[in-house]
Amino acid sequence: MRQFTAVVNPSAGGAGSAAALIPLAGLLREAGAGLEVEYSRSLGHARELALGAAGQSRIVLGVGGDGLTGRVVGALAGTGAVGGIVPAGRGNDFARAVGLPGEPARLAELLLHGEPKATDVIEVESAVHDRMPVLGSVYAGVDALANRHANHSRLLRGAASYYAGGLRAVMSWRPAGYRVTVDGTVHHRRGFTVVVANSGYYGFGRRIAPTAAVNDGLLDVVIIHQASRLLFFAVMNELRSGGHVHRRQVETLRGREVRIECDRDLPYGADGEVEATLPVTARVLPGALNLLS
């Protein structure tokens, strides 16, 4: 029977992450599986716990949102270890992309009896991040700025902080000049954002890259060109269906390695974590992660 180690960050997911694990833990243990729970102090500590459990040949479960699960499960890339995700965050965008069930009984069945699938991972490299694994996407522009505002909000929490942060970022936005290099080919653009996607979803279920697949060995690059704020809000609304890609102001590219540079200091985000500034390089690690999905 399988042996699991679940890594939870109580400070990131609050009581919600631990609560999401309780019914699943009961089902796993009732089936005879072993389950240990580790509480991390930070994303870095979560990564250490994941690697430690993997070294004991245990299946590692990341319990939380995209940031925590990306750091926990992403740490297993290239190790041969097996990982799983227990969605317990605000967005759960990567879990959505790989079709993970939300019901505890169905998720338990998958974790107990499912076969690991070879899954692509993004490797992020910058002045701050040295080959950091990311599961979903890297984005640099008004979206990263909105995320930064939300994360530093003292008055608002949850979805409200992101709506307020997004409005503040858009209203204060000025055109950014990007240099986007995709597999050696340079593209100069002015726009609102550049998104490098492994997963098709980001930002609470928005289909930023509808054709992205986590097992094709490629990254989808979505560039939203500079336009009026009114048109930008229309594009943002179309992210729910993925229809934005049909607009002439939206450009899509594909490649294995993408470098994003800008003509001014601009933050980039990676699965909801924004603590760094461009330039950044993202490259795909094809099939590097064994994921129960």
Results as ranks from 00 to 15, higher is better:
residue 121 V to L: 15
residue 122 I to E: 07
residue 122 I to A: 04
residue 123 E to V: 12
residue 123 E to D: 13
residue 124 V to L: 15
residue 124 V to W: 05
residue 125 E to S: 15
residue 126 S to W: 03
residue 128 V to C: 12
residue 129 H to D: 11
residue 130 D to K: 04
residue 133 P to M: 05
residue 133 P to A: 04
residue 133 P to I: 04
residue 134 V to I: 14
residue 134 V to L: 06
residue 137 S to L: 08
residue 137 S to K: 01
residue 138 V to F: 05
residue 139 Y to F: 06
residue 139 Y to G: 10
residue 139 Y to S: 12
residue 140 A to F: 03
residue 140 A to R: 00
residue 141 G to H: 03
residue 141 G to D: 06
residue 141 G to W: 02
residue 142 V to C: 07
residue 144 A to R: 01
residue 144 A to V: 03
residue 145 L to E: 15
residue 150 A to M: 07
residue 151 N to C: 05
residue 151 N to K: 12
residue 152 H to L: 08
residue 153 S to M: 07
residue 153 S to G: 06
residue 156 L to W: 15
residue 157 R to F: 06
residue 160 A to C: 03
residue 162 Y to L: 01
residue 162 Y to D: 05
residue 165 G to T: 10
residue 167 L to K: 08
residue 169 A to P: 04
residue 170 V to Q: 06
residue 171 M to A: 11
residue 171 M to E: 15
residue 172 S to A: 12
residue 172 S to H: 12
residue 172 S to C: 03
residue 175 P to R: 01
residue 176 A to V: 08
residue 177 G to P: 08
residue 178 Y to F: 11
residue 180 V to Y: 02
residue 180 V to D: 01
residue 181 T to V: 15
residue 181 T to Q: 00
residue 181 T to N: 00
residue 182 V to Q: 13
residue 182 V to W: 10
residue 185 T to Y: 05
residue 185 T to N: 09
residue 185 T to V: 15
residue 186 V to D: 15
residue 186 V to F: 10
residue 188 H to C: 04
residue 188 H to P: 09
residue 189 R to Q: 12
residue 190 R to V: 13
residue 191 G to M: 13
residue 192 F to T: 00
residue 193 T to I: 07
residue 194 V to N: 13
residue 194 V to D: 10
residue 194 V to M: 08
residue 196 V to A: 09
residue 196 V to S: 03
residue 196 V to Y: 03
residue 197 A to L: 10
residue 198 N to H: 08
residue 198 N to S: 11
residue 199 S to Q: 07
residue 199 S to I: 03
residue 200 G to S: 10
residue 201 Y to C: 06
residue 204 F to A: 14
residue 205 G to R: 12
residue 206 R to S: 13
residue 206 R to K: 10
residue 207 R to S: 07
residue 209 A to F: 09
residue 209 A to N: 11
residue 210 P to L: 15
residue 212 A to M: 13
residue 213 A to Y: 07
